[in-house]
């Protein structure tokens, strides 16, 4: 029956079409956390390796599954067929072939893999755009990220949003204050765990300016899903301007609302956990808020940083993020009026 004989071919074509439609989905570079459109050198090494393995795997997939489907259709038992096929027990040459050939394929993957492992383990001493790597100290907390820049002075410290200059290698030193987290910005390359008692590192050289998404990828407790990272790759001058501003203490609030908000902040429980440099607030369990008004997001990247969200967050952090470490004594938060004043103050901390 010719029509049925042709079926395997049709099925293989169908599989190809499916795989191709899959590729279209993968090939959407607009997705913020896509892993296959890297914009860093380190991410590029991974992508080269992934492409090699992907295409080899696709060829093996089509070959093996195609032949398998062909064998099923070709040798299916028809109604009333009582034939006993030839009793083949095996074939030594075939066994040797399908031991040796896959070994060669795997070797073709393993050699560049090991080369890349060593390449990524070596921090470049100077990047193409010049300059030694910029060290960024990253500390994972339940549930936010803390960033420090020893090179820019002890004062430069921020949370959840990390800035680096384009074209200069950034070296991230990863630590954890509590449990294991994992630091990942997919478009920049692979992830690395932040492990308590250890210092891990990873590096990459961003090739484009822009805003990039990342998040914690090692399950770290109830708010793991919303422990996000924003990476801002700035032009060197923009980065310099940002760093200069970060090094400054908080500006004294101007405007009546912000001034009242500052007073509420200082006399309530806030300073127990948060630092605002230039004020008496010196707490270290929560994120540094010295320049929180200049950030794009709040609540570890969960909400856009605007007046309404700030009110929502300071009024009811447990309602926004259940299990969050931000808790008021006796669970009594600020009144609506106080929350609005606090939000005004936080917004003023540019």
């Amino acid at each position: 029956m010719a029509t049925l004989r042709q079926k395997p071919g049709t099925i293989v074509l169908l599989a190809l079409a499916l795989a191709a439609s899959g590729c279209t989905q993968w090939a959407d570079p607009s997705l913020p956390e896509t892993t296959v459109f890297p914009v860093s050198d380190s991410g590029g090494y991974i992508q080269d390796l992934y492409s090699l393995i992907f295409w080899m795997a696709l060829v093996v997939f089509i070959g093996v599954e195609g032949f398998f489907l062909y064998a099923i259709v070709r040798y299916r038992r028809r109604a009333g067929d009582n034939r006993i096929p030839a009793q083949v027990h095996g074939n030594l040459r075939l066994e040797i072939a399908w031991t040796v050939l896959p070994s060669i394929v795997l070797l073709v993957i393993t050699v560049p893999t090991i080369k890349t492992i060593f390449l990524q383990d070596t921090v470049p001493t100077a990047s193409a755009a010049g300059g030694s790597p910029l060290t960024v100290e990253v500390t994972g907390h339940q549930w936010f990220w803390e960033f420090r820049y020893p090179e820019l002075g002890a004062k430069v410290m921020t949370a959840n949003e990390v800035h680096i200059p384009v074209g200069r290698t950034a070296l991230f030193e990863l630590r954890s204050a509590d449990v294991i987290h994992s630091f990942w910005i997919p478009k920049m390359g692979g992830k690395m765990d932040a492990v308590p008692t250890r210092v891990n590192f990873m590096w990459f050289t961003p090739q484009e300016t822009g805003e990039f998404y990342g998040q914690c990828v090692e399950f770290c407790g109830i708010q793991h899903a919303d422990m996000r990272i924003r990476l801002f790759v700035d032009s060197p001058s923009a980065f310099q301007a940002w760093a200069t501003r970060q090094a400054e203490d908080a500006a004294s609030p101007t405007g009546a609302q912000a001034r009242d908000g500052a007073a509420i902040f200082q006399r309530s429980a806030c300073p127990a956990c948060h630092t605002i440099r230039g004020t008496a607030a010196r707490g270290t369990t929560g994120p540094d808020l010295t320049h929180v008004g200049g950030r794009a997001t709040i609540a570890a990247g969960m909400l856009p940083n605007n007046y309404e969200n700030l009110i929502r967050w300071v009024s009811d952090p447990q309602g926004v993020k259940i299990g969050s470490k931000m808790r008021y004594p006796n669970d009594v938060g600020p009144s609506p009026t106080e929350a609005a004043l606090l939000a005004a103050y936080l917004q003023s901390l540019q």
Binding site: T35, Y45, I46, L49, Y50, I53, F54, A57, L106, I109, T110, T113, T116, I117, Q120, S182, P186, G189, G190, K191, M192, V217, E218, F219
Partner: peptide, 14 residues
């Protein structure tokens, strides 16, 4: 086999 390659696995892990 894809994530047997550690650099690729750093993108796939978790």
């Amino acid at each position: 086999v894809m994530h047997a390659s550690p650099p690729v696995d750093t993108q796939h892990q978790d």
